[in-house]
Amino acid sequence: MNHDRHIPSEDDAITDAAAHWCMRLHAEDCTAAEQRAFAQWQAADPRHAEEYQAMLEIWQTADLLPRSAQVVELKPPLAPRPRARRWQPLATAAAVTLLALPLAGWMGWEQGWLPDSYQHFEAGNQRQQVRLSDGSRVELNLNSELRFLNFKDERRVTLVKGEAFFKVSHDASHPFIVRAANGQTRVTGTQFNVWKYQDQVKVTLVEGSVLVSSNGHNGGYRLGPGMQASYHQGDFDPELNQSDDYLNSLAWRKGKLVLDNLSLAQALPVINRYLEQPLRLADESTGNIRISGIYNTAEVERLVDTLPKVLPVYLTRSKDGSTVLNHIKAPPSRAASSTL
Rank of each mutant, 00 (worst) to 15 (best):
P225M: 02
S318K: 10
V187L: 09
A43T: 07
L281M: 07
H3W: 13
L307G: 07
Q184H: 15
L281S: 03
K254C: 09
V160H: 03
N248Q: 00
W87C: 01
D283H: 07
E57A: 02
Q88A: 12
R127M: 15
S318Y: 09
L25M: 05
V313E: 03
I289S: 02
R67M: 12
A43C: 06
T306I: 11
A13K: 13
Q40S: 15
G135W: 11
L281Q: 03
Y118N: 01
N261A: 09
W21R: 00
V210T: 11
G105H: 02
T339I: 15
V160K: 03
N248W: 00
D245R: 10
T92H: 08
L262R: 04
W21P: 00
P8M: 06
E51L: 05
E276M: 13
Q184M: 15
S337L: 13
H6N: 00
E284N: 12
D171P: 07
V130T: 04
R127P: 09
D4N: 15
E154T: 10
V130H: 04
P102I: 08
T323M: 12
K254D: 15
R83I: 14
G183D: 02
G287P: 02
Q184P: 09
E163A: 09
D244H: 11
Q277C: 09
R131F: 13
Q129A: 15
R186M: 14
L64S: 11
A19W: 00
R302D: 15
H20E: 04
D305K: 10
W41H: 03
H3F: 14
M23F: 09
R222K: 15
T158N: 06
S133D: 12
R81N: 14
Q266S: 08
G234C: 07
Y246T: 02
K152M: 10
K329I: 08
E122M: 12
V71G: 05
N272T: 09
A84Q: 06
W109A: 01
R186H: 13
K75M: 12
Q88G: 03
A54N: 01
A265G: 06
L311R: 00
L247V: 13
A100D: 09
K75V: 13
E239Q: 12
K329Y: 06
C22T: 00
P332G: 01
T185P: 08
A19M: 08
G226R: 04
V324G: 02
P76M: 08
T306V: 11
A251I: 05
T15S: 09
N215V: 04
Q266L: 07
L103I: 15
R156F: 14
P76H: 05
L78E: 10
P238H: 01
G124E: 14
K196I: 08
A69C: 08
G255V: 09
K256Y: 14
A37S: 10
H232F: 12
E57T: 00
F121L: 09
R47W: 06
D260M: 03
H327R: 12
P278D: 09
F151V: 04
Y246W: 11
Q53D: 07
